[in-house]
């Protein structure tokens, strides 16, 4: 498949990425920039690092290239791609949240939110005790509570 038009994206570090327009308009933010005529030369994405931007482009490419059909195989392939995509270290996940939120890619954001929410598990007895003390009404009946105790490691 060949695309006639390309778009230049300039990231946070000043690096440029040349992508096909069909790929570039996957994120709603970029689509709106192009519609508003702000994309004559290159689109600045000052909030996104090159590592994250290449991941985002990889994701958009995959979604554009996968035929939009009801075929089970294609859907399953895309799903497994997305699941592998969010199997990243915590630092990358948070960068992705910020980037995806800025670029407005909703479907993937939901999956990342879910991934982070799933990480929000496990805590020590001391924390548990503290929680009961502060918000006694939540813990008046204890049913295997889990809580968010989540500090991301240094990258």
């Amino acid at each position: 498949m060949s695309y006639s038009k390309t778009i230049v994206l300039t990231n946070y570090d000043g690096e440029t990425f040349v992508v096909d327009e069909v790929v570039a308009v996957e994120p709603q933010t970029i689509e709106h920039m192009i519609e508003d005529g702000c994309a004559n030369t290159s689109i600045p994405l000052p909030n996104v690092t090159s590592k994250i931007l290449s991941k985002v482009i990889e994701h958009c490419k995959k979604h554009v290239e996968t035929p939009n059909s009801n075929e089970k195989a294609a859907k399953a392939d895309l799903k497994s791609f997305d699941f592998d995509f969010v199997k990243a270290d915590q630092g990358t996940l948070f960068d992705l949240i910020l980037a995806m939120n800025y670029l407005n890619i909703k479907e993937l954001l939901d999956l990342i939110y879910q991934t982070v929410a799933d990480m929000i598990k496990g805590k020590t007895p001391e924390e548990e005790e503290e929680m009961r003390r502060v918000n006694a009404w939540v813990f008046s009946c204890f049913v295997g509570v889990t809580c968010l105790y989540f500090k991301s490691k240094k990258m």
């Binding site: 939110y113 929410a117 799933d118 502060v134 918000n135 939540v138 509570v145 809580c147």
Partner: peptide, 18 residues
């Protein structure tokens, strides 16, 4: 809030002690 929306309100409230 978006992240907490994927866990129930009970767990979301428990984060208030962090």
């Amino acid at each position: 809030h978006k992240i907490l929306s994927f866990i129930g309100i009970k767990h979301a409230i428990q984060t208030s002690v962090l």
